[in-house]
Structures are given as C-alpha cells and as structure tokens.
Design a protein around this nucleic acid. Sequence first.
DNA 1: AACTCAGGCAACCGCGACGGG
DNA 2: ACCCGTCGCGGTTGCCTGAGT
Length: 281
Amino acid sequence: MVRPPCCDKEGVKKGPWTPEEDITLVSYIQEHGPGNWRAVPAKTGLQRCSKSCRLRWTNYLRPGIKRGNFTDQEEKLIIHLQALLGNRWAAIASYLPERTDNDIKNYWNTHLKKKLRQDGSLDCPAGPTGQRSASKGQWEKRLQTDINLAKQALSEALSFDPKSDKLLSNTTTTTSSNGENCNATPTSPFFALTTDNISKLLEQWNNKGSNSNSGSSSIETESSGSGSNSIMSPQPIDSVGLGLDYCGPELSMLESWLLDESVDQDQGELYDMSLDFGVQF
DNA sequence: AACTCAGGCAACCGCGACGGG
DNA sequence: ACCCGTCGCGGTTGCCTGAGT
C-alpha cells in the first residue's frame, strides 16, 4: 500500500513561510497551544499541511529557540553525544533545549563533520550504526572509548563558566521542543524576526504572559487558556540563583549512568554541580 | 559589474511509532 | 488483533547568499 503524501492535496502551499503565515500560526498556537496539528490548517485557514505547520513551529517559531553560532561547549556536547547516540538528532537536541534537532543536524552536516574529518577523528561513519561491520570486540572497545569521551564531554559541557558561556548565563524562562521549560538568553537573536509584525505580536504575547507570571521578562510563554499544554506553562527550576535553569528533560538512564560513572571515576564535582542546578537523578 | 560556485539553512519527504476505535 | 489516522524523526532537497574570479 502506497500512502499518498500528506501535502499532495490541491491548494496546499509549499516553500518558505511568509510573515503573515507566521503570525497566523503563532496567534493560533497562542490561543490553543501546540498540538492537534491536523486541525491547524482548517482552523487557521492556512494553506499548509499539518506537518508543515508543526515543523515551522518547532524549528522556527517556538519560543526559546536560540539562533546563531554554537558555543564551544554546545559543539563539544554535540560531537560526543553524536558519537554516543549516532544520528539521533532529537535525542541529542533534548540535551540542548535551545537548539532544534534540525539546527543540530544542519550544524553537524555543515560544520562538525568537516571539522572532525580535518581533525582525523571522523574516520568512519559515526555512531553505533556505522560500526556494525567491525568485529564485536572492536566494536565494544570503540563503544567504550566513545562512552568515555561522551562522559568527559558531558562533564565539560556542564561545567559552569559565567564568563565564557552565554548559554548558561542570564537566562529567561521559556519552553523547549519537548514541552519542558527552558531558557533563552535575552541577548540571543530572536526567532521569526522577519517583520516588525511578528515582533509586535510576540511582544503582546510576552506582555500577556508577564501578567500571569510575575518576575518574568523578555521572551516568555504563558499558560494557555486550557492549561492542558505544559509547553505553555513556564516553571523555572533554578532555585539556587546560578542563572542556570536546566530545561531539558529529566535525566534519563543514560545520563544517570554517565554521571554515576563520573562519580566513580573521581569526578564527583559534576554530580555535585548537577545537584546545584536542581537536576534530579 | 557580472558570473560562478560552494556553503548554510529552511523546508519537504517518507518511514516508523504510537494511540484510539 | 487489526486498521487507520496522526505525529515525530531522520534524511534529503533546493533556494538563497556571499565569497571568489
């Protein structure tokens, strides 16, 4: 059975989004929250398929997306998570809540691949899938190496340096792609600033948000009317005043394991630090 | 100034997973 | 248990822009 493409209908627009379409989509999501993408084109009158709407929101319009250059720490984290997880960009993106999986994927394909190749550290397809041909012993050996590298990178990437790492400083609460609360640097280039209209629209949104969430500013979402979408309900985690809100998902078995191992290897400071950030294991 | 080419990025496509009926 | 609709993800494409000639 061949499934027809979802966007194969007549009258479904493709290609770059216009500022007007962005405004329409943002307005709708502001009112109803993200989700039920199937209904979005019908309810908004947008000549776009549901997938296109979702993609536009998650990759471009969603609050909290940080655009622009990747920091060294982000880069390190991506490199080693890629070594560990392979091309599971969504999983990798969950560690970088301000970046979209598409952004990370693009950055990997356009910058890091090249860089690693030049360094000679990308001599074979990265990730577990690229190592299937190796003998089991070799594969395990390499996997262990990758794991160790990933642990080290995670440790480095989570090291808090307020001077050098803007990612971790002076953050503002907003939301991540997975619906968890996260932060955007107020100074970072904002999303969808293609027109003043969008800027104004979002400003209004923010103002409305600040009415219901005291102490917040700049880019920030508000609770949706229904309250059914957690993505619209900022809940800052930062309780220690470090200026860092860990906004990714709760640490998975992977991180727990990595961090446990780090402790075993006399890297207890990472564990301590993570506790400082209010991260639960 | 005009043209070519390569890089970067937004968007699309297709497949698999998942949940409801 | 099965079917169908929807969503999410990863791979790929194609357009735009800036650098080089």
